Computed example of a mutant assay.
Amino acid sequence: MKNLFEAETVDEVKERMARLRPDSAHQWGKMNAAQAMEHCARGMELALGDRRPPRLLIGRILGPMIKRKAFADGEPMRRNSPTVPGLAVSDDRELGKEQARLCGLIDRFAAAGPKGCTSHPHSFFGRLTPDEWSAWMYKHLDHHLRQFGV
């Protein structure tokens, strides 16, 4: 499974991000490209431990069962998947600024490696290993890049 501890995967994600334009049309969802980049940056902050939302009751109940399917190799995130509270973005954003912010967080995550991952549980899935965080962050980025056809 691709993950953000692999330099070639980081390069792939950044190259795809660079193809986004302010007027890139979304194929699903409500966010525009700039909002999606800020949303992804907030997701990276989860993996880095900068954001620490509480566990959701529904995640405590269903998280372990859904985690097996969500983390399956080769299975992309489904369209219109629910988001962690606090990660949705609805205000106006500047694409270039959001891309730069996200690139910086990706670089920080990749450079820190497994020791840089949070030990705080994911609000839905619960405890994740560094390898699971790295793979999930790739899947999340891939999901939103596919949302805009890149």
Results as ranks from 00 to 15, higher is better:
Leu105Asn: 00
Asp23Ser: 07
His140Arg: 13
Arg78Ile: 09
Leu141Asp: 04
His120Ala: 12
Ala100Arg: 01
Ile106Tyr: 00
Thr129Lys: 01
Asp142Ser: 13
Gln147His: 15
Ile106Ser: 01
Pro54Ser: 10
His122Tyr: 11
Lys115Val: 10
Val10Gly: 00
Arg16Ala: 13
Val89Asp: 00
Glu98Ile: 02
Asp23Gln: 09
Lys2Thr: 06
Met44Glu: 06
Trp136Glu: 05
Leu87Lys: 11
Met1Asp: 13
Thr9Gln: 14
Gln27Ala: 00
Pro121Glu: 10
Arg42Lys: 15
Asp131Glu: 05
Ile61Asn: 09
Ser81Val: 13
Ala111Lys: 11
Trp28Thr: 00
Leu87Met: 14
Lys30Cys: 07
Met65Cys: 15
Arg78Trp: 07
Lys69Tyr: 11
Lys2Glu: 13
Asp11Arg: 12
Ala36Leu: 06
Asp92Pro: 02
His120Met: 13
Asp73Lys: 15
Asn3Met: 04
Gly63Ile: 04
Lys139Met: 05
Phe124Met: 04
Phe5Trp: 11
Asp91His: 08
Leu87Tyr: 02
Glu45Phe: 00
Arg146Ile: 15
Pro85Arg: 07
Tyr138Ala: 03
Phe71Asn: 12
Thr83Ile: 07
Phe5Cys: 04
Arg127Thr: 15
Met137Ala: 13
Thr9Phe: 11
Ser119Lys: 15
Arg79Ile: 07
Asp73Trp: 09
Gln99Asp: 08
Ala100Glu: 10
Ile66His: 06
Leu48Pro: 00
Trp133Asn: 01
Asp50Tyr: 14
Asn32Gly: 09
Ala72Phe: 05
Glu15Pro: 11
Glu12His: 14
Ile58Gln: 13
Ile66Asp: 04
Tyr138Gln: 08
Ser90His: 14
Lys2Gly: 04
Arg93Gln: 08
Ser81Gln: 13
Tyr138Lys: 04
Pro130Phe: 00
Pro64Gln: 01
Gln99Ala: 03
Met17Glu: 07
Arg19Ser: 07
Lys69Val: 08
Gly74Tyr: 10
Asp50Ser: 15
Cys117Tyr: 02
Met137Arg: 06
Asp142Ala: 15
Arg42His: 06
Arg101His: 05
Met44Asn: 00
Arg79Val: 05
Gly29Pro: 02
Pro85Glu: 09
Glu6Trp: 08
Lys139Phe: 05
Asp11Leu: 11
Tyr138Phe: 12
Ile58Trp: 11
Glu15His: 14
Phe125Tyr: 15
Pro114Leu: 03
His39Val: 03
Ser90Gln: 15
Lys67Ala: 13
Leu145Trp: 07
Arg19Cys: 09
Phe5Ala: 04
Thr9Arg: 12
Ala100Ser: 08
Met31Ser: 00
Thr129Val: 07
Met37Phe: 01
Asp23Gly: 06
Gln27Leu: 05
Ala33Cys: 03
Ala110Ile: 12
Ser81Lys: 12
Asp131Ser: 02
Ala18Leu: 08
Phe109Ser: 02
Gln35Asp: 05
His39Glu: 02
Pro121Asp: 08
Arg78Lys: 15
Trp133Lys: 01
Asp92Cys: 08
Leu105Val: 04
His39Ala: 03
Ile61Val: 15
Gly59Gln: 00
Glu132Arg: 06
Ala110Phe: 08
Leu48Ala: 03
Met1Arg: 13
Arg68Ile: 12
Met137Gln: 12
His39Ile: 01
Arg146Asp: 10
Lys139Pro: 05
His120Asn: 11
